[in-house]
């Protein structure tokens, strides 16, 4: 009921790019200006390397890892990284809301042609679109 009643208010909120409710103790009710994520390298630098590191070698924490991309057999099929980016995996969050089809295609192509990877079967935004989950994860 509240949703319907305040639809106009909520709608104007979305103009600002609010993509999810704030984290409990966060102040990120509004997603601020972010770097342009045009190329695969942009996406990698501004989103992925915080965990997977600038050299794509990942990292090892308390008996657990951020996987490396170099020599990672799971990258053989582009569908796998697309799935993981869309849906998340274990501790890794989902990015289906934050990244658009072309951005996901770009970064998957980037990862699969860098860090000692030389795959030649590039994917397109349409390939990514086909993998979008019917119900994208939404934070509570």
């Amino acid at each position: 009921m509240r949703k319907i009643l305040f639809l106009s208010f909520i709608a104007s909120l979305s103009l600002l790019g609010t993509t999810h409710p704030a984290q409990a103790d966060s102040a990120s009710a509004v997603v601020g200006e972010v770097q342009p994520l045009t190329t695969g390298e942009d996406v990698y630098r501004h989103v992925c390397q915080g965990c997977h590191m600038p050299d794509g070698k990942g990292a090892t924490g308390a008996g657990a890892q951020f996987p490396a991309f170099a020599g990672n057999a799971k990258l053989k099929s582009s569908a796998y990284p697309v799935y993981v980016i869309m849906n998340g995996y274990g501790g890794m969050p989902w990015f289906s809301g934050m990244l658009k089809d072309d951005q996901i295609a770009n970064v998957v192509n980037y990862i699969r042609t860098h860090f000692d990877n030389h795959y030649t079967d590039a994917i397109t935004p349409a390939d990514v679109a086909a993998q979008r989950p019917a119900t994208p994860p939404q934070e509570q």
Partner: peptide, 13 residues
């Protein structure tokens, strides 16, 4: 600075 979301990914990197 205190960020979650896209800015946090960016700054973490």
């Amino acid at each position: 600075g205190y960020m979650f979301g896209p800015a946090a990914y960016d700054f973490a990197g």
